[in-house]
């Protein structure tokens, strides 16, 4: 088992998972079932998390294949840019899906636009994922091409500005770009960390003065912090993938981040804590999740800071 193997395993999740999520959401509409809708939204959120390492491990696969006879560098580049475009659609779907889950607990309920927007975004994601997967398949399986068909080295779906080559060169042509992205990454970190501490320290009982449903109102700002950091973080990754994809500190950072994401899903889906009034204790299970969540985010900060020391990032 290595990173290439992991890429070949993970790359089925965004394509097949999104189709299943889409089917569930259609069924939820047909049956008018809120349960099915929640299941579909939770699935989209989970796949959006899984799509991040799927994209990242692609660089290990590229590194393993690039010198092999008969493997086209142009085709790999095409796959990479298509995958990045599909990833953007997938992450947008995941964010809107999380908002749907969050809105279900607010007094006004889920906004009418939420499920239709998730449905639309998921269709776009399925199309872009299928395209990326198809091009990816051609890299080492030319036998999937029908007679007379040529590999998809031309005719990119991704606009020039969203292609990996453009993003990578842009950051290094402009001396202000990297420091500016780092600044945003730190602002996003602080925003996310602040909300993580507010929510989890309340659940842990460091202070029990707040009713949890009111703490819930501030959670989207934690998500905005996470969105800022996913975007800027992916820009670092695309800009200098060589120093991250094989970096042990980076692997640990991503693992901590994905586990923290699973925690967020747990706290979002289960009802036991959100009914707690001022002064009430959270159940032990919720406190364990909250404690692990704080530790995991500190882990994300630690391994992020250790990128140049445990690995060789600049």
């Amino acid at each position: 088992m290595n990173l290439v193997h992991l890429h070949l395993l993970l790359n089925h999740i965004p394509t097949i998972g999104t189709i299943i999520g889409f089917g569930l959401l259609l069924l939820a509409f047909a049956r008018q079932s809120d349960e099915l809708k929640r299941a579909s939204l939770a699935l989209f959120f989970t796949i959006a998390l899984a799509a991040l390492p799927t994209y990242m491990t692609g660089y290990a696969a590229q590194n393993a294949l690039k010198d092999r006879a008969g493997v086209s560098a142009a085709l790999i580049d095409q796959h990479q840019s298509s995958a990045l475009l599909a990833l953007m659609a997938m992450e947008a779907t995941g964010v809107v899906a999380w908002f749907g889950l969050w809105q279900a607990r607010r007094p006004g309920g889920v906004a009418r636009w939420n499920a239709p927007v998730v449905l639309l975004l998921s269709v776009v994601t399925i199309a872009l994922m299928a395209n990326a997967a198809n091009i990816g398949g051609q890299i080492s399986h030319p036998e999937i091409l029908s007679a007379g068909e040529t590999p998809a080295t031309e005719g990119a779906l991704a606009p020039a500005m969203l292609r990996t080559v453009y993003i990578a060169t842009f950051q290094f042509q402009h001396p202000w770009a990297w420091p500016m992205l780092e600044t945003l990454h730190f602002v996003g970190l602080s925003l996310l960390f602040g909300v993580v501490l507010l929510g989890n320290l309340r659940i842990l009982g460091v202070t029990r003065a707040a009713p949890l449903i009111d703490v819930h109102r501030l959670l989207p700002w934690g998500l905005w912090g996470f969105v800022i950091n996913s975007v800027t973080g992916m820009m670092f990754f695309v800009g200098a993938a060589g120093q991250y994809y094989d970096n042990p500190a980076f692997h640990l950072k991503v693992v901590c981040m994905l586990l923290a994401g699973a925690n967020v899903l747990y706290l979002t889906l289960f009802d036991d804590i959100w009914t707690l009034k001022a002064g009430q204790h959270a159940p032990l299970s919720a406190r364990l999740v909250a404690a692990s969540q704080v530790c995991l985010w500190i882990g994300v900060i630690y391994f992020g800071r250790m990128l140049p020391y445990l690995g060789d990032a600049f």
């Binding site: 996310l192 909300v195 501490l197 003065a209 109102r217 501030l218 700002w221």
Partner: peptide, 24 residues
């Protein structure tokens, strides 16, 4: 992080959260 959270709440985000409960 705490300056952001307290700042957002004072600006008007999540108005139902009592300020006395975020003194910590």
């Amino acid at each position: 992080g705490s300056a952001f959270v307290v700042g957002l709440r004072l600006i008007g985000v999540g108005n139902s959260l009592p300020l006395s409960s975020i003194r910590f």
